[in-house]
Design a protein around this nucleic acid. Structure first.
Lengths: 336, 336
DNA sequence: AATGCTTGCGCAATCGATTCCATTGTGATA
DNA sequence: TATCACAATGGAATCGATTGCGCAAGCATT
């Protein structure tokens, strides 16, 4: 009904005939205080529904105990899992999560980073769209650590990162395809100015070259990691005079789009064209065919990123930069 | 390299030979200030990489301009979409998002609510697991608005909510099944102590009764909205002496589990058993068969929840409680 | 009994931005 | 030129919690 003023330390102190500082010490357990008054205070707090004002505490402590997370799209199950992982570690260690979606928009990303600065986050976990140099420098100069995930800036100079061995993942996937007898293989890559996109493309190239398989330009298209581009580019590839027998697709969304297009064109996977992908593993999926895929350990990326971040935040002395590269996890499928 | 102290208003003021208050006024545009000094200040700020300290501002303003969101599972695409919707509205209106995952755990949920209180969120969007009375009362007494989503507390006394017409959704889904000729229909319900679970069950009952279709106890099982329970309960249902010809399943995860079980038992959807579900609509899905489903407009739930919340936060006079009930969206499929 | 040490607690500064109030300064009008 | 009105700016309190410092009381040691 009527707005009730929140209880402050001052109110408790008044009620107990104590000073604010004593009540504060009773709560925190720091500083000198007798067991008797401590008990008295704690008892009073119990039934007073006192809620500490963390904003005030943050200001005084110069530490908001919060971690910013910026991802490009929270509805992408990969990022959702990353966030879940990061959240569980953060909770344990007493950090809260400030979330922002950049919608793959570099302007929104910059805005979000600015917000994180203003909110005085202790650290940032960032899945960056592209290069966002000036803003990143600001974090560096304020000594606010960033852990990059998914896309890592290159060269990885002075930041932490958690990523997957994308080169290896693509290399293995391609090699398996070749071992299965496919030689005419195309690829829908991600943006080549993003590390994940380029590394996967390079892994593909390596494997193809090593096995003497042909790299044909019209079988290779650069997408943008969105479903739309998977649909469009797969159609283009299949409409070439002599389409490839298999296509590697650089992420989950483009694969979904590509598979839809293939079905819509009345063709079959893998009889007309085989597919291999990244990050399509999903225990809940009823996908048919199931897609052979190299998957990033998403939850682990989240937990590791949070651990590295918090580790740095609580370290006494400067720490070397951690650039963790996790192994991709293969899941087989009927798509090849 | 070396930690750099952040620039404060005080530093700017000193540099410009002005008082802190003047600089503050220049930034906010409020209060009396000459255009000349205002311009001078703004110019200085431009090249000073000054970042306002929002923690201090929040303390002074008694308003953190942030919205808490607590969901049971961020990797559930339904909740991910809700968050995305809420985030986009919040960004527009200048609110930031504090996120917490409760992992379907009522203790974590309580913890998260406590966190939100301490962080002084302006309002809360809550997908609650169960009844969490005392904590909710605390929000009420502090006049911090809550918008419930997904599960609404009953009776909806003094809070806002955004939900879907679950009864109607289940009723329609059942009616369609019956119209397709199915009469022996089972159901895997959600927890009946949650509003969404119960309402869907009741809608099912209504339709069945109205059409004189048999309600048989062994065809109806109460699940917990997790994939596991979908798997287990579907097996139980199919192993009854005389299994139903169709089963309605109360949410997406249980449907995925159930479908897997059916496939694993070597049976076919819909020939051996037809399925109808909730919230399985997903434009990226390669599911086969596609599942006929009544879907909550997840993104809209998020945007509406945020709008209602912010509306209340910025309203001059007290507002009546908004209990928005959105229409479910039907997507047809091959599962029946 | 005087000195010194320890313990328990209060006072007051502090974190950075906002805002009310007071002060100074400028220009206009009689 | 004296007075008034108002605009521009500075000073200081404030938001709520933390913490260094100092004071006073208690205890022990000589």
């Amino acid at each position: 009904m009527n707005k009730q003023k929140p209880v402050r330390l001052r109110d408790l102190a008044f009620e107990l005939n104590l000073s604010v500082s004593t009540v504060s010490r009773a709560m925190s357990g720091k500083g000198r205080i007798s067991d008797k008054t401590r008990a008295r205070v704690l008892k009073a707090i119990k039934k007073s529904n006192y809620t500490p004002n963390d904003v005030a505490r943050s200001l005084r402590m110069q530490n908001a105990m919060s971690i910013g997370i910026i991802v490009t799209d929270i509805t992408n199950s990969f990022f959702a899992s990353v966030i879940k992982g990061a959240q569980s570690v953060s909770r344990e260690k007493g950090y809260s999560i400030l979330l922002s979606n950049s919608d793959e928009n570099i302007l929104y990303e910059a805005e979000a980073m600015q917000l994180m600065l203003e909110k005085q986050v202790s650290g940032l976990i960032l899945a960056s769209v592209g290069n966002n140099g000036p803003r990143i420098d600001q974090f560096r100069s304020l000594n606010i650590p960033i852990v990059f995930i998914d896309n890592t800036p290159e060269p990885i100079t002075s930041f932490d990162s958690v990523s997957t061995d994308n080169h290896k993942a693509a290399y293995c996937l391609t090699t398996r395809l070749i071992e299965k007898g496919y030689r005419e293989i195309g690829m829908i890559t991600g943006p080549l100015n993003q590390s994940s996109g380029r590394q996967r493309y390079e892994g593909f190239q390596s494997a193809m070259n090593e096995h003497g398989a042909p790299l044909r330009a019209e079988w290779i298209r650069e997408g943008d990691f969105q479903m739309e581009s998977g649909m469009v580019l797969m159609r283009r590839i299949l409409e070439t005079a002599r389409p490839p027998r298999a296509v590697i697709i650089s992420n989950n969304y483009m694969t979904y789009g590509a598979a839809k297009t293939i079905k819509r064109m009345g063709k079959s996977i893998p009889d007309d064209v085989a597919l291999a992908s990244f990050d399509t593993d999903d225990p809940t999926s009823l996908s048919s065919p199931t897609i052979a895929s190299m998957n990033q350990p998403a939850v682990e990326i989240g937990t590791k990123a949070a651990e590295i971040l918090i580790n740095r935040l609580t370290a006494k002395q400067p720490l070397p930069h951690a650039n963790l590269v996790l192994e991709p996890v293969f899941t087989d499928g009927d798509s090849w």
